[in-house]
Amino acid sequence: MSEESDRPGDGAGDLAERDRAVLAVERDSWPGPGAKERAIRERLGISPTRYYQLLNALLDDPRALAHDPVTINRLRRRRDAKRARR
Rank of each mutant, 00 (worst) to 15 (best):
G9N: 11
V70E: 15
R38Y: 06
R18A: 04
A81K: 14
G9R: 15
S47K: 05
V70K: 15
M1V: 06
T71G: 01
N73D: 15
G13L: 08
A57F: 00
K82H: 14
L58R: 05
E42C: 02
P62Y: 11
R7L: 12
K36T: 01
D28N: 10
D6F: 00
A66C: 12
E3G: 06
S2K: 15
L23R: 15
L54V: 08
Q53S: 03
N56V: 02
R41G: 03
S2H: 14
R41P: 01
L58W: 08
K82L: 14
L54S: 01
R79S: 09
S2Q: 15
V25G: 10
S5D: 11
R74I: 11
A12R: 07
E26Y: 05
P8R: 12
D28Q: 09
E37Y: 01
A21M: 11
E26A: 15
P8W: 09
S47G: 08
D6Q: 09
L58G: 00
G11S: 11
V25I: 15
R50F: 13
R78E: 10
P62T: 06
R79K: 14
T49M: 10
L75A: 08
S2A: 14
E17I: 13
S2E: 14
A16K: 03
R20S: 13
P69V: 01
D14Q: 05
R78A: 11
A35G: 00
I46A: 01
G13I: 02
M1Q: 09
L75H: 09
R20T: 13
I40C: 13
A21S: 12
